[in-house]
Simulated assay, not measured.
Amino acid sequence: MSCSNCCHSTPVHISSEYRKALWIAFGLNFAMFFVEILISITSRSTSLLSDSLDFFGDSANYLISLYVLPMALIHRAKASLVKGVTMGGFGMFILFTTIYRWFYGEIPHYSQMSIVGSLALLTNLVAMWVLYRFREGDSNMRGVWLCTRNDAMGNLVVILAGVVVYFTQSKYPDLVVAFILSFLAIQASKAIILQALGELK
């Protein structure tokens, strides 16, 4: 039997606890996705749009992680590849959307940006709290943690962007934050894919 099928498997008691943490994180993220996608449309905020896609991507990632949790490492690594490519796709979508809105976008509503950003930050802090003890592990577990951590970082800069938009009455702080979020997504995607490829060797 190959090592990929027998080694580095998640202990039963950790699997049970990790499963509960994933379900909590999934519920929080899926609910927040609907809130942010609606507000990003009414507020015309690209950074909120980016953050809403992060929440949707994280929700899908949590479900994938729940599905492959009892499987061998090779299957979890393959799932990580899917998650890494998806995360990179979201990052590229936001990058091109931001470039477009740099030339044709409007000034977003700063109050909605800051209020929803604060709610999103609280959501991700709770998710980080339940997932913190599982931040180290295979590429699948690491990918879950990186997604959650990046979202919390993104929420902070969205809130800051809302404040800067208020004082400057400019669309550019929102777009700069969107650039940062797309960069974080692409970087995390690269890290997850490289670790998953290493586990598949």
Rank of each mutant, 00 (worst) to 15 (best):
A25C: 04
S50D: 12
A188P: 02
S2P: 08
M92L: 14
R133N: 13
T10I: 14
P173C: 00
G88P: 06
I193V: 09
F183I: 13
S182V: 03
D51K: 10
F183V: 12
A31E: 07
P11H: 04
S4G: 15
I94S: 05
L38Y: 15
W23M: 08
A72C: 07
I186P: 07
N61W: 09
A31R: 11
F103C: 09
T10Q: 05
L160E: 11
S43K: 04
Y18F: 15
N150G: 09
N5D: 07
H109T: 06
G27R: 04
N140F: 00
F93A: 15
H109Q: 14
I94Q: 01
K20D: 14
F34L: 13
I180R: 15
G117K: 07
V82Q: 04
I115Q: 04
K83D: 04
G162L: 03
I115T: 09
R101G: 03
V157D: 12
L131G: 02
C3I: 11
L81G: 10
A152N: 03
V144W: 01
A196D: 03
A191D: 15
A127V: 07
V126P: 00
N124I: 02
W23D: 08
G154E: 06
H8E: 12
S111M: 11
D54T: 04
A188Q: 00
H13N: 15
V116A: 11
Q195R: 09
T97E: 15
F90I: 11
P70Y: 07
I159Y: 02
L81W: 04
I41M: 09
L63E: 07
W129F: 15
S2C: 10
I186S: 08
L73D: 06
G143Q: 06
I64C: 06
V68Y: 12
S139G: 07
S9D: 13
C147D: 15
S9R: 14
M128T: 13
Y62K: 13
N140W: 00
S15V: 00
L197C: 06
F103W: 09
G88Q: 04
G27L: 10
F55D: 09
I64K: 02
I37P: 02
G198P: 01
G137P: 02
F167A: 10
Y18K: 07
N29L: 05
S189D: 05
G117C: 05
V126A: 06
L194N: 14
F90E: 09
H8C: 13
Q187C: 09
L122P: 00
V177E: 09
N155M: 01
W102Q: 08
S16E: 15
V130R: 10
P108D: 00
V35H: 08
K201Q: 05
S80D: 01
F34M: 09
A185E: 12
E136Q: 13
T42E: 11
S189A: 13
Q112F: 10
L121Y: 15
S80L: 01
A191W: 09
S182A: 11
V158L: 03
G91R: 04
I24N: 07
N140Y: 00
D58C: 05
L49E: 06
F26D: 07
V158E: 06
A79L: 01
R101M: 10
L95D: 01
L69C: 08
I94H: 01
M128K: 12
I37W: 00
A152Q: 02
L184E: 08
L200Q: 04
L122I: 14
F183D: 06
